[in-house]
Design a protein around this nucleic acid. Sequence first.
RNA 1: GCCCCCUUCGUCUAGCCCGGUCAGGACACCUCGCUUUCACUGAGGUAACUGGGGUUCGAAUCCCCAAGGGGGCGCCA
Length: 450
Amino acid sequence: MTTRTRFAPSPTGFFHIGSARTALFNWLFARHTGGTFVLRIEDTDKERNTDEALRVILDGMRWLGLQWDEGPEAGGARGPYFQSQRGDLYRAQLKVLADKGRAYERDGAWWFRLEGERHLEFDDFAKREVEKVRAAPAVIDDLVRGRVERAEDRDFVLFRANGEPVFHFVNVVDDIAMGITHVIRGEDHLSNTSKHVELFRAFGAPLPTYAHIPLILKTDGPGKMSKRDRGALVEEYRARGYLPEAVRNYLCLLGWTPKDGRTVLPIGDIIAQFELRDIHQANARFDERKMASVNQDTLRALPPAEFARLATARLAAAGIAPPADRLAPVLAAAQPKLSALEHLPEFVGYFFSDDYARSPEALEGLSRKGGDPAARVREALPSLEAAAWDAPGIDAALAAAAAAHGQKPSAYMAPIRYGVSGQAGGPHFHDVLALLGKDRCLARLRAFAA
RNA sequence: GCCCCCUUCGUCUAGCCCGGUCAGGACACCUCGCUUUCACUGAGGUAACUGGGGUUCGAAUCCCCAAGGGGGCGCCA
């Protein structure tokens, strides 16, 4: 039997990192098993569904490289893939349940009828007397959680009085109609799964295999990641210049661990190793620093041509667009030292303009550990002016200045770097000086020392 | 209030199923090295089995209880 998984987002205008991870695990499992990955849009709540909201999801999925086999803009034999277009099916399936005596109308809405002894009881949560049912517990054989039993104890709504079907109903009807074999979703759905099992059984349909994956929690503070948390939205990483394969790689690490012990690895290797049984049971806390570290490693490992392509676009967006022949050597020097594309403009901007920003924090740090940076530059200037402008020549100049003023040669490097770039860090010292050229370096150093 | 899930370094985790290792790795942090900066790199270091009972010669690992964390309980998805 070929596997069929699905990701069924509701277009809210955001692509939450937790949703992306759910989509990712469904995609990974489909790819691992050679199955089909379906994208279904749960847009039953008409109020807040817009084209832009849909785009956020589709663009985000494609950006992460999670191409779906069936769904919007991909087609497929089990469509349409928008729930807003499947109303006839839902009404027909409601009638099926009604004919079996498992659905009934009350207060203008249609309800699912549980099987079991009924009685009235005061409900502490609803704060009123309600009709409870002693139904047999639904049994879920979850690939991640193991055997879970939970009993529903109240009839629940299938169709609202306004004629719209509710999530639990459309979700199950579609999963049956679309032949979904594995339901991989967040643990927040585990308690609701008993409703879904009741529906599958009422329809006489076989249960899919369930895998409820752990949630992603806030970095600090209580609860799961929410839209308002920093780093919670896929589109945020895209805007900041994160590499999609790095974001995807990090997401794999929340709730799953590669068997080979690597943390940064190609997606093909992840697909080959990915098993639902290996998904963790405990919730994972989001760590932006580790994500940044994965992004950094991925960035450094990029083929230089690919790095150059992305870097050029990033710089252009910041208004820095030098000719390719001037840019290429700078980018070659920058790639091994850069932590994120996001920082590229200030990392290399001073190569292309004399109007660059000086970092006050960098100056403060320099002064704190090395004395007066301008004084060091004044000491080094005469020998630099006489130096041959290559690494040995500059080293000799620094050594001469050091000998004359009772300093270590290294004491001059940070002040000189700051003098020519306004930064505390950057490409290798010698690369910076060579790429800027002697004249520009000396001019900047004189200005700084004055 | 009721129900469900979970519990190893600050964080992500390996180990747990099939009891016996100085409880391993990664990120972060700290220290030192690279006559010489750096968002680089190398070498070290700090740091964890939630608690209590039980079974056992022996428990992170098996069982029970408690506590803590998370989720669900809607005519939202």
